[in-house]
């Protein structure tokens, strides 16, 4: 029985004002006003009431996603079709709501990023102004950050105003050259340099890990050696030749199980894959329990009791 009202999914045009339009500005200002109002209201709420309010909000926000996941998905329904019944209508509304919730989260992330930038400024500007140890590094960081923000924002504004005429390098202005130099020329390469360092770290970590100190590390060393050798063409070829001589080319011979490739595949499929799946199960189950505790506000963070 359909006990939910038969309803068409609401149109979300209200939340999707075109960028730069008067409606978008009104919406943005209204959102800031409502946000400030809520903030003031929250500050003036008695401390005893704050926790229940936060618990309620957490429950509602989490409940929305739980309901979105639990509610049956209609087969093949898209935005150009009318839902058949109220179950499909609710599902469509929930799917649309997920997009809106995602945007709300993006806004919150954007606001929080300001706090992050403030943290960077406070730590490094303080160190520079007080001339603490390594203040020069902080100065470099602050200058780099300001340069990147200025050039990035300038390039964005320039691209919006010129409606993409700077797509070719011949028509680049200062902003495009600046972005190319700072982002593609420096930042990306420094990222790549840090990534490359991992190769050397792997070597030093492997040296320590593969030293024979216990039974476990010996097993680890043996397994690693087999995996490495089996992936080396020459060693694999040599092992294949030896096995072929023993078996005389008979594919059903028992000795075929002892070729390097067979041992490697056995280690990978029989030992490694199930172990990783078991570990992943543990992580998923732990995540589920943690998610429930957070959704229902059952625990206090930071070791509180």
């Amino acid at each position: 029985m359909n006990f939910l009202p038969l309803a068409q999914a609401p149109s979300l045009q209200f939340f999707q004002a075109p960028g730069g339009s008067q409606q978008a500005y009104i919406m943005a200002l209204s959102a800031i006003f409502v946000g400030l109002l809520l903030m003031v209201a929250m500050f003036n709420t008695p401390i005893k009431l704050r926790r229940p309010i936060i618990i309620l909000l957490t429950f509602l926000a989490g409940g929305f996603y739980v309901l979105s996941w639990l509610w049956p998905l209609p087969l093949g329904l898209d935005a150009s079709q009318k839902p058949l019944n109220s179950v499909e209508a609710v599902s469509l509304t929930l799917q649309d709501g997920t997009t809106v919730m995602g945007k709300i989260l993006q806004v919150i992330q954007g606001i929080l990023l300001f706090l992050g930038v403030y943290s960077v400024l406070r730590v490094h500007a303080g160190r520079f102004l007080k001339r603490q140890k390594d203040w020069a590094f902080s100065l470099v960081l602050l200058c780099s950050m300001m340069a990147m923000i200025t050039v990035g924002y300038g390039e964005y504004i320039d691209n919006v105003r010129s409606a993409g005429v700077h797509a070719n390098a011949e028509s680049w202005t200062f902003w495009q050259y600046g972005k190319d130099f700072l982002f593609d020329g420096m930042l990306q390469n420094m990222d790549a340099a840090m990534f490359s360092i991992i190769a050397f770290f792997i070597l030093s970590a492997a040296y320590r890990a593969f030293r024979i100190r216990s039974i476990e590390s010996t097993i680890l060393l043996a397994s690693a050696l087999i995996m490495i050798l089996a992936l080396m063409g020459l060693a694999e070829y040599g092992s294949g030749q030896v096995i072929e001589r023993i078996t005389g080319g008979d594919p059903s011979h028992f000795a075929n199980n002892f070729s390097l490739t067979s041992i490697r595949l056995w280690i990978r499929d029989t030992l490694q894959a199930p172990s990783i799946r078991a570990l992943e199960w543990g992580i998923f189950i732990g995540g589920l329990a943690m998610g429930i505790r957070l959704w229902l506000s059952l625990e206090r963070s930071g070791g509180g009791s």
Binding site: L279, I285, A289, E299, G303
Partner: peptide, 28 residues
């Protein structure tokens, strides 16, 4: 793996966390 999630129960011994850990074992 899930030792990571068991950590706070292990450290604090809060009933909520310990109960949750036992629930995880039931699931396993």
């Amino acid at each position: 793996s899930d030792e990571f999630y068991a950590a706070s129960a292990y450290l604090s011994r809060q009933p909520v966390l310990v109960g949750s850990l036992v629930g995880q074992d039931w699931i396993k």
